[in-house]
Design a protein around this nucleic acid. Structure first.
Length: 609
RNA sequence: GAGGGUGUAGCUCAGCAGGUAGAGCAACGGCCUUUUAAGCCGUGGGUCCCGGGUUCGAGUCCCGGCACCCUCACCA
C-alpha cells in the first residue's frame, strides 16, 4: 500500500480519536458555489471586508482541490459541480467561536435554506422517517485540529460569511467546519487532472472530480437529452420502453450479443435496435412513440463505435421521411443552439494525437499519397444552421464517384481497383450490385459530408424495412444524415405492407458478411398484417450527437463507463490489497456505525427490501 | 482481425552511447493570520507494464506477452 494512503488512514484514526465522524451525514441547506459567487457580487464587498449581516451567511460544501496552510490561517479552494470557491479557516475565528457554533438546524437565512425547509415540512410530520442523528457539534479547538488534518480530496462543509481578502479574492470565512467525507486516496494534480486516457476511462470517478471539462461533457449530455424529450413532447410523442432481451434480433444490420434465460431455457439476444417493437406500438395505436434505446452490437470498437450505445428512435403515424427531416433539424440544430449556445461547433482531436499519432500516420500514409496534411491535426468548424442541404443519393454518387450508379460495370471495376490497391478490404466479387455501389458511396461520398447533410432515396435493396418510392421501385424512401463524415441519423417512410415485408426479410443480400437486416421475424410480419398506419420513423445516435456537440474526439469521452478489457495483473494486485484492508477494518466498525448494532434488518449498504 | 505508437514515484513528465533512477506538484517533520498552483528549511518515496534473452552490468538493446491510444477493416 502506498505511503500516502497509509498516511491518510492514520489521519482517519486521529480524527475518530478527536470525536470527528470522518464520513459525515446529512448536511441540508447547501448553497452551490456559483450561487454564492453571484450573491456575493451584489454585496459590493471591498478588499479586506467581510459581510456582517445575514445576506452574507452561507452554507457551502465541496471537494478540497487546493490547501494552503499559512500557520494560523488556512485557505482551501473547494470545488462543487457549479464551480470553485475559496474557504478561509482562521484559528482565532474557529477556536474563539467568533461566528458562534450553530446547531444542525442552521439552514442559513431565510430564502436560502429553501431546500431544507421544504424537505422538513414534507417529511416532518411523517413517522416513517426518523431523522438522521445530528453530527456531533465540534468545539472550536477540535474544528481547528480538523482543519489541520484536512487533505486534498476531502469533502468538507462550511457555515460562514463571505468576504474579500486583501487581494480581493472572494472567500467564505468559516464559522463552523464540518468534515463530510475523508478521502483515503490522493487526487491527481489539480492542474493536470488525469491525462492518461486509459485511467480516465477506467477510473471515471476520479476523472470526473478532477476534471471539470469531463464533468461538463456529461452534464451537457444530460441537457441534450432533456432537450430532445422537450421537442418530442411538444410534438405529441410519448416515451415507451421496449425489450432489450429479444428472442429474434432485428431492425439493423449487426451481429448481436447472445445470452440465455435459465428458467425458460431459451437463448435470447440483446437488442441491436428497438425498431420492430416500436412498430408494434404503432400497430397498437400508440401513434407517436419514442425511446432512448440502449443497443448492443457485438462488433469492433473504435472512436465512433462502442459495444453498447444509445439510440433515439421515434415513429410518427401518418407521417413520412420528410417529417423526420424536420424533426432531425429541430432536434440537432436545437440542441446546438439551446444547449451549446451556437450553431458553429468545432471538432477536436486528441491532444496527444497531434504529436504522437502524426508519426504513425505519416508512415502509414507514406505510400498512399502526398497528402501530408495528416501531420497537423484537423479541427473543423461545423455549421448546424438550419435548413440543411438535401441531396439525392444518386446525385451525390455521380458527383463524387464520377459516373452513374446505374453503371454497374464501372462500379465493379472501381471497387476492384480499390481492393487491389488495398485501400479497402471490400471484395466486390462476393457482393451484389447494390452492395458494391454502397461501398463506393461510403468510400467516396460520406467522408466529404462535413456540414450536416441529408442524403435521400437509397437503393431499395439496401433497405428491407423501408417503403418503396412510388415512381421508382428501385429506390427506398429513406434518408441518412451525415455530420463530419459520420452517420448520425437514419430515417424511413416505414414499410407497412406485410407481404412486401415478408419478401424483403426473406431475401439475403450477398456481401454483407453474414450480417444482414433480413432476419425473418414472422411474429413481426403478423403484426403488420393487423394493419400498421403509414408512418415516418427516425433513429439518431445520441452518443455521436453528444460527441459532435461537445467537440469530443471519441465516443468513449461521452460514455461514462466505456467497456474496457480486463485489468492487468498489477492492477488486480492492488484490488487484493484493498480487500485485505477491508477485512482488517471490518471488525472495529460497529463502534462507529450505530445502525450496525441495533438493527436486525438489512445488511449494510443493502436496499433493505 | 492487420499496421503504427505509448507504458518510469500518488499525479504530470524528464532520462537512453547500456554504468548507483531524476524534477515539479503531492506526501512526512518544522516555521508563518490574507494565501492565489503561497513561501522557506529538512525528510521519505520506484517490481522503470509483465516474462524471457544478450551483457561484467539493461529503464535503455533483442524476443514474447498484456493494456491503452491512433489508422484500416466490419458497423451506427
Amino acid at each position: 500500500m502506498s505511503d500516502q494512503i497509509s498516511d491518510r488512514r492514520a489521519k482517519l484514526e486521529k480524527l475518530r480519536a478527536l470525536g470527528v465522524e470522518p464520513f459525515g451525514g446529512r448536511f441540508p441547506g447547501v448553497t452551490p458555489n456559483a450561487e454564492i459567487r453571484t450573491a456575493a457580487e451584489k454585496l459590493n464587498l471591498q478588499a479586506g471586508q467581510t459581510c456582517e449581516d445575514e445576506a452574507g451567511r452561507f452554507r457551502a460544501a465541496g471537494r478540497v482541490v487546493l490547501y494552503r496552510d499559512i500557520g494560523s490561517l488556512i485557505f482551501l479552494t473547494v470545488r462543487d459541480w457549479t464551480g470553485e470557491l475559496q474557504f478561509g479557516l482562521s484559528k482565532k475565528m474557529l477556536v474563539e467561536g467568533i461566528e458562534g457554533p450553530r446547531g444542525q438546524g442552521a439552514e442559513g437565512p431565510s430564502g436560502r435554506g429553501a431546500e431544507g425547509n421544504e424537505e422538513s415540512s414534507r417529511l416532518g410530520s411523517s413517522d416513517l422517517r426518523t431523522p438522521e442523528p445530528a453530527l456531533p457539534v465540534l468545539d472550536g479547538q477540535t474544528q481547528w485540529k480538523l482543519a489541520k488534518l484536512l487533505d486534498l480530496g476531502d469533502i468538507v462543509g462550511v457555515d460562514g460569511r463571505v468576504g474579500r481578502t486583501k487581494t480581493g479574492e472572494l472567500t467564505l470565512w468559516a464559522g463552523q467546519l464540518t468534515l463530510l467525507s475523508k478521502a483515503l486516496r490522493p487526487p491527481p494534480s489539480k492542474w493536470h487532472g488525469l491525462t492518461d486516457i486509459e485511467a480516465r476511462y477506467r477510473q471515471r470517478h476520479v476523472d470526473l472530480y478532477s476534471s471539470p471539462e469531463s464533468q461538463r461533457v456529461f452534464l451537457l449530455r444530460a441537457r441534450i437529452i432533456d432537450l430532445v424529450r422537450e421537442v418530442l413532447r411538444r410534438r405529441g410523442f410519448v416515451e415507451v420502453e421496449t425489450p432489450v432481451l429479444q428472442p429474434i434480433y432485428g431492425g439493423a444490420a449487426a451481429r448481436p450479443f447472445m445470452t440465455h434465460h435459465n428458467t425458460l431455457d431459451r437463448d435470447l439476444y440483446l437488442r441491436i435496435s428497438p425498431e420492430l417493437y416500436l412498430k408494434r406500438c404503432l400497430v397498437g395505436g400508440l401513434e407517436r412513440v419514442f425511446e432512448f434505446a440502449r443497443c448492443f452490437r457485438n462488433e469492433g470498437i473504435s472512436p465512433r463505435h462502442n459495444p453498447e450505445f444509445t439510440m433515439l428512435e421515434l415513429y410518427q403515424a401518418y407521417g413520412d421521411y420528410h417529417d423526420m427531416m424536420d424533426i432531425t433539424e429541430e432536434i440537432i440544430a436545437g440542441a446546438a443552439g439551446d444547449v451549446i449556445g451556437t450553431y458553429a461547433i468545432a471538432t477536436k482531436r486528441r491532444s496527444d494525437e497531434a504529436t504522437k499519432g502524426a508519426v504513425g500516420e505519416s508512415q502509414a500514409a507514406g505510400g498512399v499519397g502526398a497528402a501530408g496534411e495528416s501531420a497537423s491535426p484537423v479541427e473543423r468548424l461545423i455549421d448546424y444552421t438550419p435548413p440543411w442541404p438535401r441531396w439525392k443519393y444518386a446525385d451525390l454518387f455521380a458527383e463524387h464517384v464520377g459516373f452513374s450508379l446505374a453503371d454497374i460495370a464501372a462500379a465493379r471495376q472501381r471497387a476492384r481497383e480499390l481492393f487491389e490497391r488495398k485501400e479497402t478490404s471490400f471484395d466486390e466479387r462476393k457482393a451484389d450490385d447494390e452492395v458494391v455501389v454502397n461501398a463506393l458511396f461510403e468510400h467516396y461520398v460520406e467522408p466529404r459530408l462535413v456540414n450536416p447533410t441529408f442524403v435521400l432515396d437509397y437503393p431499395a435493396a439496401l433497405c428491407p424495412l423501408t417503403k418503396r418510392h412510388p415512381h421508382d421501385p428501385s429506390l427506398a424512401l429513406r434518408f441518412e444524415v451525415f455530420v463530419n463524415g459520420m452517420e448520425i441519423g437514419n430515417a424511413y417512410s416505414e414499410l407497412n405492407d406485410p407481404d412486401v415485408q415478408r419478401a424483403t426479410l426473406s431475401k439475403h443480400l450477398r456481401g454483407e458478411e453474414g450480417e444482414t437486416m433480413a432476419v425473418m421475424d414472422e411474429d413481426f410480419v403478423e403484426a403488420l398484417e393487423c394493419g400498421m398506419p403509414p408512418a415516418g420513423g427516425l433513429g439518431i445516435g445520441i452518443d455521436r450527437l453528444v460527441m459532435l456537440l461537445t467537440g469530443s474526439p471519441s465516443i468513449r469521452d461521452v460514455i461514462l463507463f466505456p467497456l474496457q478489457r480486463a485489468m492487468c495483473v498489477s492492477a488486480r494486485d492492488q484490488l487484493e490489497v484493498s480487500e485485505q484492508v477491508a477485512a482488517d477494518v471490518a471488525p472495529q466498525r460497529p463502534t462507529h456505525a450505530k445502525s450496525a448494532g441495533d438493527s436486525t434488518a438489512s445488511p449494510p449498504g443493502g436496499p433493505g427490501g
